[in-house]
Design a protein around this nucleic acid. Structure first.
Lengths: 186, 186
DNA sequence: CAATGACTGTACTGATCGGTAAAGTAAAGT
DNA sequence: ACTTTACTTTACCGATCAGTACAGTCATTG
């Protein structure tokens, strides 16, 4: 028997593994064990090895956010896009049950390998949210500060809810952050 | 020539290494390489190996916060203790140049090994801050929400400032969080 | 049906992993 | 001076690491 994969099918599996184990913790044998995909196949799709795999995962995460969050924030109705951001973020991170791969990579030496991609992810998130807040009527400076605070707040909520093993911490934090943007808008 | 160490001298060195490389990334050979301490010595002080080393590091971090932050928050003048927390936290994390080891461990599977210690660290931080806020005049519920938000905000600021490689993000975030506690107190 | 090219499975490499064993060294206790 | 204790150094172990090589297997194409 022989199961045939496509690169696009593999990346989400890799994403889940890197998320749970981190870059160093995700060894090739654990990857093959949990995906059922042999080393031969992995190196066929990712000749650059583990680093290329992690790079592909970051790129896919980035693409998802770009499509589902950043672009709406930049171009759609500001209020709707911001509201959609909160629900999309809550769903994406499974109410705190899933962590942010990019944020996790930023914390250890893995950052050195992917600093451009990691930086870009957050820069664009903050920039897109800032843009929406400006369109919603905030002054430039306040919009930037609030955007930065919101993105940091999400990352912190992920750390805290995982540390306390309590999803409620995450959803509660998102609600507080969302209300702050609404409240300040009036 | 023979250099003799004490356990208490080694733990801070280990702390810096685990912080930078993460639990999985901190291999024994990299530890001996960076500290100059041989495996024999390490296993003499930490018979439980890497896991005991990381446990000792967490315990020391925890003890520092307990002494420098949590205890003042619980027993000293509320306003002063909160103000001291912000400056101590800013110094401890070197204005964002240093990450929170406990927070980093919470994000990957390392959490499984140390879940009790990790959970306790944050529970006590939030509890102590909550206590100070109550003494400062906040109603119980609001105090808890603000404490949780502050601790999460610090963790998020560390992630973000490291991702953007920009210490200003961290200090700015701390100022915003500090002002929120002050503002709500009036 | 033959040949091609995309993909998989297996077997392997040298390096490094966490951990162990024991000889060696220095200082303190007697 | 001799022993004990504390610590370091060196050498080693089996397991696992990332990565490579290549024969085998299939669907597609001519």
């Amino acid at each position: 028997m022989k199961t045939v994969y496509e690169r696009a099918d593999i990346v989400p599996l890799l994403a889940e593994i890197f998320r749970e184990l981190g870059y160093e913790g995700a060894s090739l044998s654990r990857i093959t064990e949990r995906t059922g995909i042999g080393k031969g196949s992995l190196y066929h799709f990712f000749p650059g090895g583990k680093e290329e795999m992690a790079g592909a995962v970051i790129a896919e995460v980035d693409a998802w956010f770009e499509h589902a969050v950043y672009r709406p924030l930049r171009h759609d109705d500001a209020g709707e896009a911001i509201a959609a951001m909160w629900t999309n973020v809550n769903d994406y991170f499974r109410s705190g049950g899933r962590i942010c791969l990019v944020g996790a990579f930023a914390l250890d030496e893995t950052r050195e390998r992917f600093s451009a991609a990691i930086g870009g992810y957050f820069i664009r998130w903050i920039g897109a949210l800032r843009s929406a807040l400006v369109r919603a009527g905030y002054p430039e400076e306040e919009a930037l500060a609030l955007a930065e605070e919101s993105v940091a707040g999400i990352q912190g909520a992920l750390v805290l809810s995982r540390a306390l093993n309590d999803k409620a911490v995450f959803t509660r934090a998102l609600e507080t952050l969302a209300k702050r943007l609404d409240a300040a808008a009036r």
